[in-house]
Simulated scan of single mutants.
Amino acid sequence: MNINLLYDFSVDRENQIIHITREFNAGPELVWQAWTTARLLDQWCAPNPYRTETKVLDLRQGGIWQYAIVSPEGQKHWSRHDYQHIETRKSMTELRAFCDEGGQVVPGFLPTEATTTFEEAEAGTRVTIHERYGSQEIFEKMATETHKKGFSSHLKNLDRLLLTLQAG
């Protein structure tokens, strides 16, 4: 595994945008699969020691991914991604929001618009995420070194999963 994979996390405070770029030592097809398959997302998409639990994944324009981030004590924090646009193996745009277990968005919550792109890179695949926050409060919570480290943690979980999938 290439341990020097690109990871860039930059904050544009003026426009309330976080830009994240990360390279993975696997091809775009496998990275896309890990990013869009419930059983695989549940294996990597949470910072340690938390885990992800998917309730619904309907990967299509107009579909949603509803999931909980589960604490080691079992407390669930619900979120949903509403897919606005999907170009298979290339990009997706979604509106992200906190919700309840039934999928109802928290009242008054302004969603985050996120566009994720997948492209071939020397290491294998470069994933770029642009998160435009509708809420100043949520942006301030996410534009921190703590969030950067947490995000890096769950991307390292993806590195480990990709190695397992490639070996399998």
Rank of each mutant, 00 (worst) to 15 (best):
S79G: 15
R80F: 09
R80I: 05
H81L: 13
H81S: 14
H81Q: 12
H81M: 14
D82P: 00
D82G: 05
H85W: 00
H85L: 06
K90A: 12
S91L: 08
M92F: 11
M92D: 04
T93H: 03
A97N: 05
A97H: 05
A97R: 04
A97P: 02
C99D: 07
D100W: 11
D100C: 10
D100T: 06
E101K: 15
G102A: 12
Q104S: 11
V105I: 09
V105F: 04
V105D: 08
V106N: 11
V106C: 08
V106I: 13
P107H: 08
G108E: 04
G108T: 02
F109C: 06
F109E: 09
F109N: 07
L110Y: 01
L110H: 12
P111S: 05
T112N: 01
A114F: 05
A114H: 04
T115N: 08
T116F: 13
F118V: 01
E119P: 05
E119F: 03
E120C: 04
E120K: 12
E120F: 03
A121I: 01
A123I: 04
A123V: 01
R126A: 06
R126E: 14
T128C: 13
H130E: 15
H130R: 14
Y133K: 01
Y133A: 01
Y133H: 07
G134P: 04
G134M: 01
G134Y: 00
G134E: 00
S135Q: 01
E137N: 04
F139E: 00
E140P: 02
K141I: 00
M142D: 02
M142S: 09
M142N: 02
M142R: 02
A143I: 05
T144P: 07
T144R: 11
H147L: 01
H147W: 00
K148F: 00
K148Q: 11
